[in-house]
Amino acid sequence: MNKQSLGYTIVFSFVVCFAFVFLLSITHQATREQVQLNQELRTKRAVLRALTIEFNDDEEVLERFAEIETVTRNGIELFRLTKDGETRYAGIFGGAGLWGPINITLAVDADVETIIGLDIIDHNETPGLGGRIDEPWFQRQFRGLRLVDGGVQLIRDGNTEGEDGKADAITGATGTSMSMDRILNQTLRDLRSALGGEA
């Protein structure tokens, strides 16, 4: 058989493509559930962290998440948690960062007067600079932060610890800090209109 003939080349290419793509499809199918589970876990973990609920492993994530209700307000999907007579809401929001989109989970109290917690789901900021929005010290600042005029401000100098409505920006990452400022305040406005408070 002539291996350089047109017929052989076409048949060979077809068979090889089919075989490899078939094997890939099988692998993809076999791991699809696991991949989906990973994605769900990521979202759930972010919601729990924003609501400042502690967890140790994936099983606990699912357990704790089961206590949270999902509600839709004004077309926005929110996660509601009622604990000790207090109602808290968390939602997934996003906006433009310096290099790409930043997606966050933000949790607030029912009147949108205090931030409960913040978690960054994903971002493309510069590692070591803007990428530090991932670090615990940055996110911890927002825990229990009381809002001033319904918003927050990221401050460049000084220490903002204990001050209402203020958090430290990241040194050397002006672009990312400004983006975070914008995203957070937009998110707070969205949450306020979703929860029916004053816009």
Binding site: K3, Q4, T9, S13, F20, L24, T27, T31, Q34, V35
Partner: peptide, 30 residues
């Protein structure tokens, strides 16, 4: 492998293994 499609087939084989690596990472090391 016919000579004319040699490089196309090589690329296909390489892509096949890379996608396998990608799928495995996505599933087990998210």
């Amino acid at each position: 492998i016919p000579r004319k499609v040699r490089m196309v087939v090589q690329t296909l084989i390489i892509a096949f293994y890379v996608i396998i690596v990608d799928i495995v990472l996505r599933a087990y090391l998210p």
